[in-house]
Amino acid sequence: MDSVHDMGGTDGFGQVAPEPNEPVFHAPWEGRVLALQRAMGFAGAWNTDMSRFAQERLPPAIYLAVSYYKRWALAMESNVMERGLADPDEIAAGHALRPGRKLKRKLTAALAAQGLGRGSFARETNRPALFKIGDRVRAKNIHPKTHTRLPRYVRNHVGEVVVVHGCHVFPDAVAQSMENENPQWLYTVRFDGRELWGADADPTVKVSVDAFEPYLEPA
């Protein structure tokens, strides 16, 4: 969906301000949010792209105003309620009022190391890749209302395939349904800065995105 999370190229956000000696978490609740997200992911309650999509659907003004981990917390509450894992009255009460549903598995302290690792997104396919390294490709001018990983700033621009990553789980599909991985070939496509930002742009800059095959057409 086209919303404020798709920030590449937006002006006006000011300088980047590194924080000296930044702590891992700025408050204990941030660590709990992160760990809850990991544990619920391990349990199979939802997947990474469902978390991202829940954040993207926050009202734009809220997305921009709240801190990073608060955005995670709000998205997690949405996922919990939308998937029927708890009801609004329970969230409001701060206690379970009804028994939980059965999930695939449960993260325990003994398994915590597994909850830290990332899975593999690569999938086998018999379908040949449409593109190869060196091919010129155009990012399609598409505007799905649902989750996508094709940023707006490359749409309708021409770049060059520089890496073929193999076939990977397709975020646009799996954000809608855990069972629908719909694997697609994944490429790194590199764009000249002037192609993206105009003739006055820095000629030494090149920008790449990782783009799934359905995002691309021959140029």
């Binding site: 760990a35 990991r38 544990a39 619920m40 909850g115």
Partner: peptide, 17 residues
């Protein structure tokens, strides 16, 4: 809520943090 529902174990959350 998520603990009482049986989805998460606080000890696992401690280990992740």
């Amino acid at each position: 809520v998520l603990t009482e529902k049986g989805y998460v174990d606080p000890a696992a959350l401690d280990a992740i943090v």
